[in-house]
Amino acid sequence: MREDDNAVVDLAGVRKEISLALVDDVAVGDYVIVHVGYALNKLDPAEAAKTLALFADLGGGLPDGAPVSR
């Protein structure tokens, strides 16, 4: 986190300074959707887990009880 609404994000190991001017309440450790140097929204880990579960569920590609994320 820096002054003037900026923050440094880690994009697969590449560190990049982005603007948080469009989002509220972002904390260190949060995941954000980044586009043209701005965070557009925060990523909701609980919803991400639900979608991953849906892949497994609808896809039928994983046996029951298998972890959905590697």
Binding site: F55, A56, G59, G61, L62
Partner: peptide, 10 residues
């Protein structure tokens, strides 16, 4: 890729 094949089958 594994999940993708599962989804494709579905």
């Amino acid at each position: 890729g594994e999940v993708a094949r599962g989804l494709a089958a579905a």
